[in-house]
Measured scan of single mutants.
Amino acid sequence: MTVRVDGVDYEFSSLEEAVRFALKMAKSKGAEVQLHNGTFHVE
């Protein structure tokens, strides 16, 4: 599972870890999280 934040990809071994990271980053940026074909994008 890959989480992309500001064009940088972060790899996670589990969906749970990836979701937690994506939500944490989105909250800190006041951004939204989108899921596309198994890849999260924080914008």
Rank of each mutant, 00 (worst) to 15 (best):
E11A: 11
A18G: 02
L23I: 13
E43K: 10
V42M: 04
A26Y: 07
F12C: 07
M25F: 04
K27G: 14
S14Y: 03
V8T: 08
Q34D: 04
V8W: 04
K27V: 15
A31S: 08
L15F: 14
R20N: 10
M1G: 08
M25H: 04
V42D: 07
M25V: 12
A18V: 02
G30Y: 08
G7F: 03
R4H: 09
V19T: 07
S14A: 03
E17A: 10
E17Q: 07
V19W: 15
M1F: 15
A26C: 13
K24D: 15
V3T: 01
K29G: 11
K24F: 14
K27N: 15
Y10K: 01
G30V: 04
G30T: 05
G7R: 02
S28G: 12
N37E: 09
R20H: 08
T2C: 14
F21S: 00
D6K: 03
V42E: 05
K27C: 15
F40M: 10
H36G: 06
R20A: 13
D9Q: 06
H36A: 07
G38C: 15
Y10P: 00
M25N: 03
L35D: 03
T2S: 08
V42Q: 06
G38V: 06
E11G: 08
V42A: 06
F21Q: 01
D6R: 02
S13F: 09
S28I: 15
E32P: 06
K29Q: 12
L15R: 11
S28A: 12
V42W: 08
F40L: 14
E43I: 15
V19E: 09
E32C: 15
L35Q: 06
G7K: 02
L35Y: 13
S14D: 07
E16A: 10
F12E: 00
E32S: 14
F12N: 00
S13A: 10
L15K: 10
V3D: 00
Q34H: 14
H41E: 09
F21T: 01
R20D: 11
G38I: 09
V8H: 06
S28R: 10
V5G: 00
E16G: 08
F40E: 07
G38W: 07
L15Q: 10
V19A: 08
S14P: 00
V5K: 01
T39V: 15
Q34A: 10
A31G: 12
R4N: 04
F40I: 12
S13N: 11
V8L: 06
G7S: 03
T2I: 11
E17P: 01
V3K: 00
H41T: 08
E16N: 06
G30A: 06
V3P: 00
K24E: 15
S14T: 12
M1S: 08
K27D: 15
D9Y: 11
V8M: 07
H41I: 14
L35G: 03
Q34W: 14
G38T: 05
V5E: 01
L35E: 05
K29E: 13
V8F: 06
K27R: 08
D6T: 01
F12L: 01
S14I: 04
M25Y: 05
E11V: 13
V33C: 15
M25G: 01
V8Q: 08
S28C: 15
E16W: 11
R4L: 03
L15W: 13
E43T: 14
N37V: 08
H36T: 07
Y10A: 00
M25D: 02
A26R: 04
L35H: 05
E32N: 13
H41P: 07
V19D: 02
G38K: 06
V33H: 03
F21Y: 05
L15E: 07
L23V: 11
K27Y: 15
T2H: 08
S14K: 04
E32G: 10
E43A: 11
V5T: 01
Y10I: 03
V33L: 06
D9G: 05
G38R: 03
V42R: 04
G7H: 03
S28T: 12
F12P: 00
G30K: 09
A26P: 01
T39A: 10
V8E: 05
K24V: 11
E32Q: 14
V5I: 06
H36Q: 07
E43P: 08
T2K: 11
S28M: 12
G7Y: 02
M25K: 03
H41R: 04
E43H: 10
F12S: 00
L35A: 05
D9W: 08
S14M: 03
D6Q: 04
E11W: 14
E32V: 13
F12I: 01
G30R: 06
F40P: 07
M25R: 02
V42H: 07
A18K: 01
D9K: 07
A31Y: 13
L23C: 14
E43N: 12
V5M: 05
T39F: 10
E17Y: 02
M25Q: 04
D6S: 05
G30W: 08
A18L: 04
L35K: 04
G38H: 09
E11H: 13
D6H: 04
K29L: 14
T39I: 15
E43R: 10
E32M: 13
D9E: 09
R4I: 08
S13V: 08
T39G: 09
G30C: 14
V33K: 02
Q34S: 12
L23G: 02
H36R: 13
S13K: 11
K24M: 12
A22K: 02
H36S: 09
K24G: 07
S28P: 07
A26K: 04
A31V: 12
H41G: 07
F40N: 05
E17V: 03
V19G: 03
V19M: 11
V19N: 03
R20G: 04
G7V: 01
V8A: 04
H41F: 13
G7Q: 03
L15P: 08
D6V: 01
Q34I: 13
K27E: 15
R20I: 10
A31E: 05
K24P: 00
E11Y: 13
G7E: 04
S14R: 04
S13L: 10
E17I: 02
M25E: 11
V42K: 07
D6I: 02
E16R: 11
F21K: 01
N37A: 06
M1K: 08
Y10R: 01
E17S: 05
G30S: 04
F21I: 01
